[in-house]
Amino acid sequence: MNKNHKILEVKNLTQYFGPPSNPIKAVDGISFHIYEGETLGLVGESGCGKSTTGRSIIGLYNITDGEVIFKGQNVHQIKSKKEKKRLKREMQMIFQDPYASLNPRMTAGEIIGEGFDIHGLYKNKQERQEKIISLLEAVGLNREHMMRYPHEFSGGQRQRIGIARALSLDPSFIIADEPISALDVSIQAQVVNLLKELQEERNLTYLFIAHDLSMVKYISDRIAVMYRGKIVELGEAEEIYHHPIHPYTKSLLSAVPLPDPILERRRKRIPYVHEETPDTAAMHEPVPGHFVYGTEEQVRKWVQQAQR
């Protein structure tokens, strides 16, 4: 990870849906950055806006307000078609549902090679095929799988095809939108190991979106916790886990089931009572590198509670 180089900067990203008079505030003015080669985990419960954040960054939605700066360029201000296409190749996405994210009428080879058709790459048939096979092998599949249809694969294999597709255009930044939550436990570990290997080999940067805190903790360098469209806490993975400050993070952590009956029998869930944050609320940094969203007073109170 290169702490000097921010590959992505998100400033005051805002994404509203519905009528402007009474919008649904899916993402409500969030700011963060990701360093090159890093994995930033974005966790939160369903409806908190974490998937919307990913989709807004990659440009699937027209954002309401804010800036997304990727490698020094404001993504939403690019006008020229050529630049837009170049950007598409740099930034890719892995989707949650390995059943829904592959076109059932296309073979694995066609799915992985789709980006080549769109960008007019590898027009030579031989070359194209070799590239597809090398991608299949990179994700632990082989050439025999090329002519197969998605429904013939198991969930884990399908997600590998989705990963190969995301890698096909040699991106530097990948948004992984809950890439493992639809998979079985044993397959989750396979896919997470694969993502880590690929990151090392190809110097990839990940935005890893998930609701499974234990996996996020394992794969991420830093973690951002999202709640109701806002990032409420952000910091180093270990720090967030061992010294959470925001009561919502604490509640979330206390709810993770552990694979141990004795611990489970004595687990105490900490319920979270929603606290309104007035307009004066902002990001505070009570511990270096550890950010918490709230009013000054709230943050002081939470830090005290956390220290106890």
Binding site: N103, E114, G115, D117, I118, G162, R165
Partner: peptide
């Protein structure tokens, strides 16, 4: 709004590509 269409869009697919490759076959 199925994910494979979104995936094609993140690859940079044009509307014509989406109609021919994804929508009509399905």
């Amino acid at each position: 709004n199925r994910e494979f269409v979104l995936a094609a869009r993140t690859l940079g697919a044009s509307n014509w590509h989406l109609i021919v490759r994804h929508i009509i076959p399905n």
